[in-house]
Design a protein around this nucleic acid. Sequence first.
DNA 1: CCTACCGATCGGTAGG
DNA 2: CCTACCGATCGGTAGG
Lengths: 189, 189
Amino acid sequence: MNDSPRRRELTRLAAQLFVQEGFDRTTVRMLAQEMGIKSGSLFHHFRDKQEILCAVIEEGTQNALAIAREALEACAPTPEARLHAMARAHLETLLTDRNAHVVALYEWRRLDAESRAHLSHLRDAYEALWQEVVGDALEAGLIHGDKFLVSRFVLGALNWTVRWYDPEGSRTPEELARELIAMITPPSH
Amino acid sequence: MNDSPRRRELTRLAAQLFVQEGFDRTTVRMLAQEMGIKSGSLFHHFRDKQEILCAVIEEGTQNALAIAREALEACAPTPEARLHAMARAHLETLLTDRNAHVVALYEWRRLDAESRAHLSHLRDAYEALWQEVVGDALEAGLIHGDKFLVSRFVLGALNWTVRWYDPEGSRTPEELARELIAMITPPSH
DNA sequence: CCTACCGATCGGTAGG
DNA sequence: CCTACCGATCGGTAGG
């Protein structure tokens, strides 16, 4: 609905707080203070706290989808390059200061039924893109297994990196993506 | 400390509620009602809400560690059988009505510094066991990659199953474990 | 294990 | 966007 610069800035700050503290522990007063306004003023921009979560998750998923599509267009048209591009794009949106995507994955269950219905098509589109790329890699003989299971295992491995990745460490998201693809690819490739 | 049957039953019920609702949304009143007592009475068994979480996570991790060790002793002494036994044990504690292990993984960040210090040795022991089994599989040439990265990717893929697994579906945890190992193992094996 | 209750804090509102 | 405030609910306690 509304999409003012003010609302966008609040959405960005909310994403940061939701990652740091979790949605339930983030209070409207914390978000207001971060923005430099009073808590009551938040509800000029959002109907309620749930709508803030919804805005963050929508932004995070849309951005992840856009980045993934750009990465696919920019890379070589081989199944291996496309798989690597997807993994790299996913990790970069998760690990390089893109809080909204982390919220989309880790706070999805906090959405009420209405918000979930509104956002599920976006989520499905992102997963469908993954299944397409994984499916092509399977047909090319690059990897093996069931399309849906492989997609879920790979996404799980990627999503869990949020829990242990150290940005000050020696590995970049790109290297992590390469290592994951190497793990599921026979050495002959 | 205390370990009465009453406290154990409360820990079991708390694990169930923490998985369903999340730790933050579970109130002491919900837990008391589930147990059939008044909320004030809970604090005869636990100092505060944090200690309930600590008890659940301790139980979940200890149980996962015990089940994994049993599985390793019962299986064939080959790297492949041991890897499969670990994955299967992990999935069964996560997916087959063992709520405490899910809480240990998904609510770890809700622990305060004191509880975390008390439990980190248990968590480390479980991860060390995984790294040992993965390390043996690497040396045997069954899989390839970095020991720590492979361990983390595999555990991530397993942990994320909680988010999409359907107990009414057609696949058992054992089949899931087999498919995951197949994914990271060259077809020649 | 219960009754009775507490101070704090929560999300959200009314009126300007 | 602020002031001023609300009803509800939270974790936890005292005294029995």
